[in-house]
Design a protein around this nucleic acid. Structure first.
Lengths: 350, 350
DNA sequence: TGTTAGCACTCATTCAAGAAGAGTGCTAAC
DNA sequence: GTTAGCACTCTTCTTGAATGAGTGCTAACA
């Protein structure tokens, strides 16, 4: 069977209506509120076809139709209208971001919050992965007799620090040498590029102090590698209660748990989406999502870039009848705003 | 009317039973499952008295009795038995904490998680306030031409850092002087003690570089003062769904929102509880809590200490029929375990 | 005087049956 | 190909009765 223009229009009408109301939509509604000028009976006939094709279904006999995952998919892929939305909202959003945060963490939290407020869905955002960013600056200082403080600054001014316990005391001279050694060798490298050979080489160069130095270098390498666990910030979790289809106890509990145990979100945010259509925006509908607890949700993700190759992912989680148009629009806006504010220069980042 | 021994026993029985079942408890139940050897009729008479005195009430005529806030309060204050609990659980808990975390943040998250798992309630923990802790070490380094990195280590090895943008370039010599200046004057002071006079004095001493230096010092002072917003970690939020009396949509949504907007928890965790009974453990029942959304909950808070005067607060939030004995026990255990692991020495902290 | 047995009464909960309403599928006519 | 009409299905809401837990009160008992 073919999906002709009229069927498409009807499907679109069904979905639009369902997005708004959340109730199964019947033939009469469509007949009345579209410009097709068809009677409900005709609509019914078409609906039977659409159901056979798998785009819509009935929750029970003699109920209206609800879009299936496949239906939503078609809608998102081909029928979504980019409405020219009230750009006011967006401006407000921009203003909220504009007060330039001086910590990346604060910025991300703010983005999540603004998005949640703006869309009324639950949001999440992963901090940019630092693995591929370059080291900019390393400094060891002595905090007290047995403890060193290692401060590592990564491109984009992401700062990591670690206390390294020392078995032996280091004198000032050694410390100075170490600092020089670390900076000459590691500066400009990405974390990926620091390998065993590299470390061995540095140990060798350390000469007399080889043992102590080796220890320190190992610790530093370790410190750099650590924190590799994806940091994720979330907001608007309780927005899920706005949507009855997600608000029942079991589902809500599972969803909230997922948002609390942020690692579970990793699967969605870890892999930069597969470069879909240039924009880096990807839509997962229902079963398509890799996260079990979101089988009844839709998830829209977008990559963002803060300059200097620092990329992260933003995600929005809502009911399947989410306002896809608005969400995609909003994500685009955020993307471009982050780009305006922090992008390009690379060094302008907080 | 007087609360004689028998009334107390009956009240205790009612509360115990209600804690277990969550259902209103009737006279017959009490008559059968206590060693009072009284008929249900007698119990009924006593219950009427207890109701008049405000310790229990009926959710509706011809239902069993439920403890009132006042009833719970009496129970917590005078009738709670410190059961010798399965210490096994506690040992496990200890083991989970023992893998010494090297960041305070990780430790706190872990504590929250372990507590939530152990008690099946929602937990929260505030990071130790750093206001009163002493500065241990300050270092400025040049990251690039126009940016300084300020690293500030506070007693207990809490590390703060900030990027300070500079209008002018600083040469190495000035930087060195600055570092010495900052360390000589600020070391050992608490953040509270850094006042305007202090800063003015330092600016003066900076002599030639007074202007630039002034800028830097202001920025450092600012950086220290910043981050004054209480950091709070939470866990087990979705445990609230275990208790039907909290799981309805409105309440759950409000509670979850409170846990997400962590500032709202500040009131509970900010003020170290008023030194109640030495242990620093405080119980808020129902209306007693300062947080609006928890009017139907009970909250138990405890202060903890990580050595070096670093104090924070742990909170556990559950239904009013929470297992107070267990919660108090568990909090005590955590307190002492944190003390064992990190306390005393003050310098042993991660 | 305190305790108990007994009984009438109240109220929440459960269940079934019925009514209402929404929406469909199908057929026959246009 | 489209539409009107009607029987049919299924959900939801309402009602009323049955059930059962638990109380309050009274009268008898020790």
């Amino acid at each position: 069977m073919e999906l002709d223009e009229r069927k498409k229009k009807i499907l679109q009408a069904v979905i639009r209506n369902y997005l708004e109301t959340g109730e199964p939509v019947g033939s009469r509604t469509i007949s009345k509120y579209t410009d097709l000028n068809l009677s409900s009976a005709t609509i019914r006939n078409e609906m039977v076809d659409l159901e056979e094709m798998g785009y819509i279904f009935q929750p029970h006999t003699s109920a209206g139709r609800i879009p299936s995952d496949k239906g939503y998919r078609l809608y998102v892929d081909t029928m979504m209208e980019e409405k020219e939305r009230e750009l006011v909202e967006m401006k407000e959003m921009k203003e909220m971001l504009v007060e330039r945060q001086n910590k990346i963490e604060t910025l991300l939290k703010q983005v999540a919050r603004v998005l949640a407020q703006n869309t009324q869905y639950a949001t999440m955002i992963s901090a940019p992965r630092t693995k591929r960013s370059k080291l900019k600056f390393i400094q060891l200082s002595r905090v007290d007799a047995r403890q060193l403080l290692a401060v590592i600054v990564i491109e984009g001014n992401v700062i990591k620090n670690n206390i390294l316990p020392m078995d032996e005391e280091l004198n000032d001279e050694t410390l100075l040498k170490l600092n020089i050694l670390l900076n000459t060798h590691l500066n400009g490298l990405s974390i990926d590029e620091i390998n065993l050979a590299m470390i061995a080489m540095m140990k060798q160069q350390a000469g007399i102090h080889s043992v102590i130095v080796g220890e320190v270098i190992d610790a530093v390498a370790e410190a750099i590698r650590a924190e590799e666990d994806l940091e994720i910030y979330t907001s608007g979790t309780n927005n899920i209660f706005r949507y009855p289809e997600l608000a029942d106890q079991r589902k809500a509990s599972e969803l909230i748990n997922t948002f609390e145990e942020k690692q579970l979100l990793g699967e969605l945010l870890q892999e930069g989406p597969s470069e879909e259509g240039e924009t880096g925006i990807q839509v997962y509908i229902g079963e398509e999502t890799p996260v079990q607890s979101m089988k009844d949700c839709s998830v829209v993700t977008a990559t963002y870039e803060l300059g200097g190759g620092m990329k992260g992912t933003i995600g929005i989680v809502g009911p399947k009848r989410m306002d896809y148009d608005k969400v995609v629009m909003t994500l685009r806006t955020i993307q471009s705003q982050l780009d305006d504010l922090y992008g390009g220069g690379g060094e302008r980042v907080p």
